Amino acid sequence: MKHYEVEILDAKTREKLCFLDKVEPHATIAEIKNLFTKTHPQWYPARQSLRLDPKGKSLKDEDVLQKLPVGTTATLYFRDLGAQISWVTVFLTEYAGPLFIYLLFYFRVPFIYGHKYDFTSSRHTVVHLACICHSFHYIKRLLETLFVHRFSHGTMPLRNIFKNCTYYWGFAAWMAYYINHPLYTPPTYGAQQVKLALAIFVICQLGNFSIHMALRDLRPAGSKTRKIPYPTKNPFTWLFLLVSCPNYTYEVGSWIGFAIMTQCLPVALFSLVGFTQMTIWAKGKHRSYLKEFRDYPPLRMPIIPFLL
């Protein structure tokens, strides 16, 4: 059985960083990364991007050496992705923050609204209902991160945790300040508006959870398998008939419901920014589905049925 020789060059300087002799033909890129780490321990596998061309796409960890368009002496180019952190850690951090930050404003801890309001309670029912909904949303997200989601990528750049936390924590503080303010004004149409908004919120939260469970069942634990998601017997998953990412559709719907319930401008802005970002993600995933699966359902749109 022939063996391969693998040289790894710096993608920027073309400097030879490592030479691997007698590499098995069936070795994966993940195994080559581990061998590279032995000579350069500062670059652990998650930091490494190996590619066939200095400006090309990163090879997948599961790619097999003998199936790549290389000879028995293969040249790979290395790029440092920077310090990495696990997706689970990032999600837990960015979701735990809003949960606790919101509660600080809800309980009106000292130095927020003035001494005479310390630890007082709002007289408006919608304020307490909003706290329950907000807390439920982020507790749900935390539990899904721990027990439901299966991540195709193990890590992301460390800098992302600061960007994500600034976004989630900042908006949580902004909306919580106004919703729990002693001078907060309840919704214009009173109980009817709150009940309608609560119904929207609850339905969308159930829908979002149902989609996450359906997506989880598509991917076996520990794998990166991708399949076309289809509706199940659960009615909340029937939205798969019309959109590629109904989890985002339901998520946006939840925040629209919360915005109607609280009639709070920061919540509306958070919903708008979230919708914009999720639309970008949904379009990317939709394109990926179309590219990977020739039999992908043609009627589906990325996030909004028939429109977007």
Rank of each mutant, 00 (worst) to 15 (best):
300 R>L: 07
190 G>R: 08
105 F>W: 00
237 T>M: 05
270 F>C: 08
119 F>W: 00
191 A>M: 14
284 G>V: 11
150 R>M: 14
257 G>Q: 08
29 I>F: 06
111 F>E: 06
198 L>V: 12
87 W>N: 03
295 D>S: 00
10 D>I: 09
41 P>Q: 04
119 F>D: 14
10 D>N: 12
133 C>H: 04
215 L>Q: 04
19 F>K: 12
298 P>I: 04
18 C>P: 12
292 E>F: 07
99 L>N: 00
196 L>I: 00
78 F>H: 04
60 K>E: 09
29 I>E: 05
12 K>T: 11
182 P>Y: 06
230 Y>A: 15
40 H>R: 10
188 T>V: 15
294 R>S: 09
44 Y>H: 09
16 K>Y: 10
38 K>Y: 14
169 W>H: 11
38 K>N: 05
131 C>L: 08
45 P>A: 13
285 K>N: 09
297 P>M: 00
228 I>S: 10
81 L>V: 03
77 Y>K: 15
121 S>T: 06
241 L>P: 11
49 S>P: 07
172 A>K: 02
103 L>R: 03
205 Q>P: 01
54 P>E: 15
283 K>N: 07
196 L>S: 14
36 F>H: 07
24 E>G: 09
225 T>G: 15
102 Y>W: 00
223 S>H: 15
164 N>G: 00
44 Y>V: 09
283 K>E: 12
116 K>C: 15
224 K>M: 12
220 P>T: 06
79 R>H: 11
133 C>R: 02
181 H>C: 14
46 A>E: 14
260 I>P: 01
103 L>I: 06
49 S>M: 06
15 E>Q: 07
260 I>V: 11
265 L>R: 04
271 S>E: 03
63 D>H: 12
76 L>Q: 06
162 F>V: 02
159 R>S: 08
85 I>F: 08
51 R>P: 07
125 T>P: 10
44 Y>R: 04
224 K>L: 08
135 S>T: 13
18 C>N: 13
267 V>K: 00
3 H>R: 12
41 P>S: 11
225 T>I: 06
41 P>R: 01
63 D>S: 13
105 F>H: 15
3 H>Q: 04
185 T>R: 05
9 L>Q: 06
293 F>M: 06
145 T>Q: 13
139 I>M: 08
232 T>M: 15
127 V>A: 09
162 F>I: 13
105 F>V: 08
253 G>D: 01
250 Y>D: 13
46 A>S: 09
5 E>G: 09
122 S>T: 06
59 L>T: 15
248 Y>T: 15
113 Y>G: 14
114 G>T: 01
235 P>K: 08
301 M>E: 01
256 I>L: 09
136 F>M: 15
160 N>D: 09
273 V>T: 10
83 A>P: 12
178 Y>W: 04
95 Y>H: 03
252 V>S: 03
27 A>D: 07
172 A>Q: 00
90 V>L: 13
188 T>D: 14
290 L>T: 14
164 N>A: 04
111 F>V: 12
104 L>G: 12
49 S>G: 02
252 V>G: 11
114 G>L: 15
88 V>Q: 01
21 D>F: 01
132 I>F: 05
85 I>Y: 15
153 H>S: 04
55 K>S: 04
57 K>M: 00
11 A>L: 05
222 G>E: 10
137 H>R: 01
198 L>H: 09
171 F>P: 00
217 D>G: 10
139 I>V: 12
22 K>V: 13
249 T>I: 07
65 L>V: 08
116 K>N: 13
167 Y>H: 09
264 C>T: 11
